[in-house]
Design a protein around this nucleic acid. Sequence first.
DNA 1: TATTGTTATACTCTATAACTATA
DNA 2: TATAGTTATAGAGTATAACAATA
Lengths: 150, 150
Amino acid sequence: MSYDDGMTTLSAADLELAHGVRMAVTRLARRLRNQRADLSLTPSQLSALAALDKHGPITPGQLADHEKVQPPSMTRVLGVLEEKGLVVSTPHPTDRRQKVVEVTSAAHAMLVADRRAREEWLASRMAELTSAEVAALRAATPVLEKLIAP
Amino acid sequence: MSYDDGMTTLSAADLELAHGVRMAVTRLARRLRNQRADLSLTPSQLSALAALDKHGPITPGQLADHEKVQPPSMTRVLGVLEEKGLVVSTPHPTDRRQKVVEVTSAAHAMLVADRRAREEWLASRMAELTSAEVAALRAATPVLEKLIAP
DNA sequence: TATTGTTATACTCTATAACTATA
DNA sequence: TATAGTTATAGAGTATAACAATA
């Protein structure tokens, strides 16, 4: 593959492989999303809950920053999630203006089960591959991760 | 890889590979989405425009079905796209209740340029891979496509 | 005085219901 | 009478502005 320093032009072969990778990755990601069970949450609610599960107990302001929404929007999202018993809030240990929210164990279990179900779907699809195809997939996974890196 | 006929249990190794593939594919797809230029369109508008570009001149009703929205919603989306000069509508050739909408050449060029830019970004990322890594990617692409199929 | 979070209010997007034109 | 599309209206969701509590 040619080296692109911003001055040279990418070769047609480079772009053709990039096209194939983009199409395959984009479509498989969509298929995986479609396998998601109906959790009766809006995209914003699910995204906030997953971020909270991943980044541990944080304040609503920090979560709003992470999710790139305004604080009043996060107030509403957290209100719904708390009503559903998916998050709980506790007073901030040192600053009484703030509070700290975290996912409940029920919400964590729900998220884990959902990820697991999608991975089981993918594994069952992979069960129809030849061993050479599985090997190709295994070899490519770290390469895909490397593309994501920076 | 073990064969899953719906009765046997998936092995831990199967699920581990599925986990790695899911993570890599999901994250790379997100990175690719983030590379999208700001086209000043809402997700619904962009999705409808892309579907219209792909599936040729069709009626608003067909487009609403494809996009899984109600006809009145599509009326509004198409109104915006028409105002922006991205779609044009013509009378239906045989049924005067219907009409046919299609993307303008400007909109088509915009979509092509946007895809091209994302593929150039990906190609520039791939330029930092070793030739063995590129080969692994090339070998895995048809496998990813096979997983999507149905 | 500055900051965190909430409440008040407006705007956007999509849905259902009602309407118009045509088959 | 049934169908395609539009208009009227309501329900979510998010934003900005104003407010209350605390640092």
